[in-house]
Write a protein that binds this DNA or RNA. Structure first.
Lengths: 383, 383
DNA sequence: AAAGGCGTTTATAACGTTGTACTTCTATCG
DNA sequence: CGATAGAAGTACAACGTTATAAACGCCTTT
């Protein structure tokens, strides 16, 4: 009964689609994204042929191919990844969940991972868990935003050995870091024990005998956390050198931030225990300790030699530059991405989880008396 | 003609879909992701009702809602974002193109942006352009991977004023940084001139008169790059204080990396020109210069007071801690995300591009003789 | 008691792509 | 020269979601 025209009341006239496509009467292009249909029409072929060209399928005549390609270029066509993702079940994006990028270590890790993923034409959606246990759980169980992704690289900071079961989420995932071992999924980590041992041996080699350690975990139980593993390497090195372990030289610091490194060093100095070297369980702690040593008037490396762990970029430029353990970040990133891709492509026959540890090397710099250019003192493996 | 059974030759039997869904005869769930259809069946409603519940539409009876919600929970249903993206034209993901995360400044920027985006339920796909002009062009013109995204936050490092036109890509985009001004898209940047002026005034206030600058652009033309703008602020401060500008104290350094800061400082010292303060055009340069000052035996701040720009986290923990200009990174991030969202939601009526500059503040630390806790010496606006 | 009105719910058609099955064309061979 | 294999191209149906329009209740109104 309604007369053609504006409806009487709330009767909304069929609203125009957001992206209207005017009939391409003139040569000018519209501002909405063209689809395969448009390309097909311009090239005078079916949309499937367009698809075939785009996906490099065989059985497309060269002449047809060039016709389609030029239509694509002319229209500025770009595939709709949502549609492709819906159809193919793949989005071409993987998720990366890290505590926070403002922590140098994770920024560099993310950097390396994005580069590695890019080689495989994968995008990386970065999620920050902010050192929050619940957010880590959300990320790994998929409650989070990451359902647009094909898989997940997960670097926890709060979840621990007891949360192993959470990793078994049926979603392609690869674990990074040193907080959980023996979990149900692939894991790329590092030679914590042997590389820590090598770091301490480096200090021993330059004649130090009273080697402090900063970064032990507050609770006393020996677990599998990287802190515990590195402490184990520290003790092993001392043991093999026949040097007794002095408990007072092992200092707690958590989390591994600069302020805590500085704080632990101040406490160590205040305690009045003599020491001539420091093994900090990561570079950030070491940099904080360096700061506290400077405040206290102790010269590095003359009075105290210092070595860190992780070999973050900053270590090269601190004053003095910081010796460190390079755990092979680029290799870790590349390996993690490759494992994840394998899992994504895996049909059903779940292979058992793998754990991979790239080789490490000790990078000697000024803080342990090295003056020349960067040069690895020792490579290694065999954790 | 073919007998039922294996085909004679290449006749592929209709292959099963990758994700088969067994009839849900028993209570046990299958391992494939359930869809709205599954939820609808379990809840005994239509799929549209499920959709309505998920999208918090009105006109759903409470009893129906709870029934649907429990079905969702029971099945562990999770919406397929590709499908949603296809249908709605939105993916819920924005792109962030930065040079590289291993540069502290960009890591912290990305950190802030991811947090800001999360507040709006947006994911962030991070792309690294690696300081490569072609890759920056690819990112901004959309040739890259970012077509799964609803919009782009772009922080160029190579593109300059002459590339303005490239930004007009018809894709919702917001520009960050100080390399391009007056472009065709929204821009979130900072008060380069006035904040640089304030930084130098800070040095003047503590009695310094021969203030060096590190980070000027190699080419001499005065453009609109952040380097030029900050140099302008430097000169303005000196001018107002009635102090002549000494060209030899203005040192070139590019790009703004530690090594170049150290290098420029070494050159400055070698040139034998007296100076009692340094304004480094960013913190990274300042940290490099700090390193070189230390090597040369100059005390900071006693012999040379130093102030940087950006207020990266690291500035708080260097030795000595570094005074800096805080350009308001969190505000910049939040603003950029909000502008982008506005543009994404914009129908057609293109509002003209906007440029927004948050307030800045000067953070005085040890490198300019401040010993207490962090405290802003001056806030400011009005570029 | 029939007619409307409003709160709910549903059937169905997109969105843009790729896989399957089929058709048409071309060249080669006996 | 007709048969035929393979290359080249096409029609159509998914993928899982949301928007539209229409239908179904149930209650109020006349």
């Amino acid at each position: 009964m309604a007369i053609r025209g504006t409806g009487v009341k709330g009767i909304a006239s069929p609203r125009m689609q957001r992206r209207q496509k005017p009939a391409p009467s003139n040569g000018a292009e519209t501002d909405v994204s063209p689809t395969m249909h448009d390309v097909a029409r311009v090239a005078g072929v079916s949309i499937k042929t367009v698809s075939n060209v785009i996906n490099d399928f065989p059985h497309v005549r060269p002449s047809t191919r060039t016709r389609v390609l030029s239509a694509i270029k002319e229209l500025g066509y770009r595939p709709n990844l949502s549609a492709r993702g819906l159809r193919s079940g793949r989005t071409g994006v993987i998720g990366l969940a890290v505590p926070e990028l403002r922590q140098n270590y994770f920024a560099e890790l993310a950097d390396a991972i994005i580069r590695a993923a890019e080689k495989h034409d994968l995008g990386v959606l970065v999620e920050q868990t902010s050192g929050d246990r619940d957010r880590e759980i959300a990320a790994v169980t998929g409650s989070g935003r990451l359902r647009l992704t094909d898989g997940l690289l997960f670097s926890p900071e709060r979840l621990g050995q007891d949360d192993r079961h959470l990793l078994d989420n049926g979603f392609p995932s690869v674990l990074l870091g040193e907080r959980i071992f023996g979990g149900p999924i692939d894991h790329v980590t590092m030679h914590n024990v042997s590389s820590a041992q090598a770091a301490v041996e480096h200090l021993l080699r330059i004649g130090r005998r009273r080697i402090a350690l900063i970064g032990a975990h507050p609770d006393q139980r020996e677990e599998l956390r990287s802190a515990d593993l590195r402490v184990r390497g520290y003790k092993a090195a001392l043991h093999e050198a026949g040097i007794p372990v002095v408990p007072e030289l092992i200092r707690v610091a958590a989390p591994w931030h600069r302020e805590n490194g500085a704080e632990a060093m101040r406490a160590l100095i205040a305690a009045g225990i003599p020491f001539d070297a420091l093994f900090a369980l990561n570079d950030t702690l070491a940099l904080g300790a360096l700061r506290a040593l400077g405040d206290a008037g102790r010269r590095v490396p003359d009075d105290v030699a210092v070595i860190g762990f992780d070999n973050i970029d900053e270590a090269r430029f601190s004053l003095p530059s910081l010796s460190s353990v390079d755990p092979g970040r680029d290799v870790i990133a590349a390996t993690a991405v490759e494992l994840l891709i394998e899992r994504i492509n895996e049909k059903e026959g779940q292979r058992p989880p793998r754990t991979i540890k790239p080789e490490f090397r000790i990078v000697a710099r000024e803080s342990t008396g090295h003056t020349g250019t960067d040069e690895p003192t020792a490579g290694g493996a065999a954790s």
